[in-house]
Each structure stands twice: as structure tokens, then as C-alpha cells.
Computed example of a mutant assay.
Amino acid sequence: MLIPKNLYYTRNHLWLRKIGSYDFCVGITDFAQKEIGEIGLIEFNVKRDIIEKEASWGVVYGINDTFPLLSPCKCKIISINTFLHKKPSHINTDPYNYWFLTISTSASENEFLTREEYIQLIR
């Protein structure tokens, strides 16, 4: 199972890649995509630009499981990757290059899990 060192993680199996001082790309981990199975549909349920920590912003539907997408922190949504509507199963082949959202937050990286902490979580 692939768990890159240069990312942050959440207990809800999201990864975050820092792309600026306060900005991150957000996607699901390799562990999550394997649990979900082949992904057939991703629904983004974003009603506001600002979302609170743990607020639902979408759902991933796979052949094995349905996976709720919960905000990793209080953040502002910058963009949504609508390309995934056309071919959501791309996440199964390369989960760390297909992101769902880009967000901006003042949350500290200390609020997220390190690679080592995430490995302990999924064991």
C-alpha cells in the first residue's frame, strides 16, 4: 500500500498536499480507495464556500462501500475537480494524483496526521 511521506493525512482517510502557504489539494488515500473498491460515482455536495471541520462535502460510491467525504478542517473551497465526474475510477489507479478539492485554511499542519501516525491508524 502506498503512503507518500510528503503528504498530511486525516482519520477520515483523506490526504492533503500543501500547495501554498495556506492552500492544500485534498484527495482520498490508497487505503480508502481499496476499501471502497472500483469507484463508480463521486458526488460533491458543496453548498457554501466555507465549510466547517468534519462537515460533509461529498460522497464516493464504490462497488464495496460508500465513503462520506468530511472536511479535514475549517476551510474555504478554492476549486472542485469536476473532471472526476467523467472518470471517477481514475482514483483507483492513482489516488495521490487525482484530487477532489483545493482548499485554503489557517489550520496548522499539526491538526493533520503525519505518514507515521496514519500508518498506525490503519494497522
Results as ranks from 00 to 15, higher is better:
Ser108Val: 06
Phe112Leu: 10
Leu70Gln: 10
Pro4His: 03
Ile91Asp: 08
Lys87Pro: 01
Thr93Arg: 12
Phe83Ala: 12
Glu35Pro: 00
Leu7His: 11
Cys73Gln: 01
Asp49Trp: 03
Asp23Phe: 05
Val26Thr: 06
Cys75Phe: 06
Thr102Trp: 03
Ile39Met: 09
Pro88His: 10
Trp57Val: 11
Tyr8Ser: 13
Ile50Arg: 13
Tyr9Phe: 15
Leu121Phe: 10
His85Val: 01
Leu16Lys: 00
Ile19Glu: 11
Gly20Arg: 00
Asn45Val: 07
Asn92Arg: 11
Gly62Ile: 00
His90Gly: 00
Tyr98Lys: 11
Ser108Ile: 11
His90Asp: 09
Arg48Thr: 15
Thr102Glu: 14
Ala107Cys: 15
Thr82Gly: 02
Cys75Met: 15
Lys18Arg: 15
Gln33Cys: 02
Asn12Thr: 13
Leu2Lys: 15
Ile28Arg: 04
Phe44Met: 15
Val26Cys: 04
Pro72Asp: 02
Ser108Pro: 02
Thr10Trp: 00
Thr105His: 02
Thr93Trp: 06
Phe67Tyr: 15
Gly37Met: 01
Ile122Trp: 02
Asn45Met: 12
Pro88Gly: 13
Asn92Met: 08
Ile119Asn: 01
Leu41Met: 11
Thr114Ile: 08
Ile3Met: 07
Gln120Trp: 00
Glu117Ser: 12
Tyr9Asp: 11
Phe67Trp: 09
Leu121Lys: 14
Val46Ser: 04
Leu101Met: 07
Asp30Tyr: 04
Glu35His: 11
Phe83Tyr: 08
Met1Ser: 13
Leu101Gly: 08
Val60Asn: 01
Ile91Met: 13
Thr29Ile: 04
Ser71Pro: 10
Ile50Glu: 14
Ser56Cys: 12
Ile77Ala: 12
Leu14Gly: 07
Ser56Phe: 02
Leu84Arg: 07
Leu41Gln: 12
Ile28Ser: 06
Ile80Cys: 05
His90Lys: 14
Phe67Val: 03
Glu43Ser: 14
Leu41Ser: 10
Ile28Leu: 09
Ile103Pro: 09
Glu54Met: 13
Glu116Val: 10
Val59Ala: 07
Ile39Ser: 06
Val26Phe: 06
Tyr8Gln: 08
Leu2Phe: 05
Ala32Pro: 03
Val26Gly: 08
Gly62His: 00
Glu116Met: 04
Lys86Phe: 04
Ile63Ser: 15
Glu52Ser: 14
Asn110Tyr: 06
Gln120Met: 10
Gly20Gln: 08
Ile78Ala: 12
Val59Cys: 12
Asn12Pro: 02
Asp65Arg: 13
Leu113Gln: 03
Thr93Leu: 14
Asn45Phe: 07
Thr10Ile: 05
Arg17Ser: 13
Gly20Val: 08
Ile50Asn: 11
Ser56Glu: 12
Thr114Arg: 01
Phe31Asp: 06
Pro95Ser: 09
Asp23Glu: 15
Tyr61Met: 09
Ile63Gln: 09
Lys18Leu: 11
Asn110Gly: 03
Trp99Ala: 01
Asn12Glu: 14
Ile122Leu: 03
Glu109Ile: 15
Pro4Ala: 12
Asn12Ser: 14
Ile80His: 10
Ile3Tyr: 04
Ala107Leu: 06
Ser106Glu: 13
Asn92Gly: 09
Ser21Glu: 15
Tyr96Val: 07
Val59Gly: 01
Lys53Ile: 08
Trp57Pro: 03
Lys87Glu: 14
Asn97Ile: 08
His90Arg: 13
Asp65Val: 00
Ser108Gln: 05
Thr66Cys: 08
Ile36Val: 13
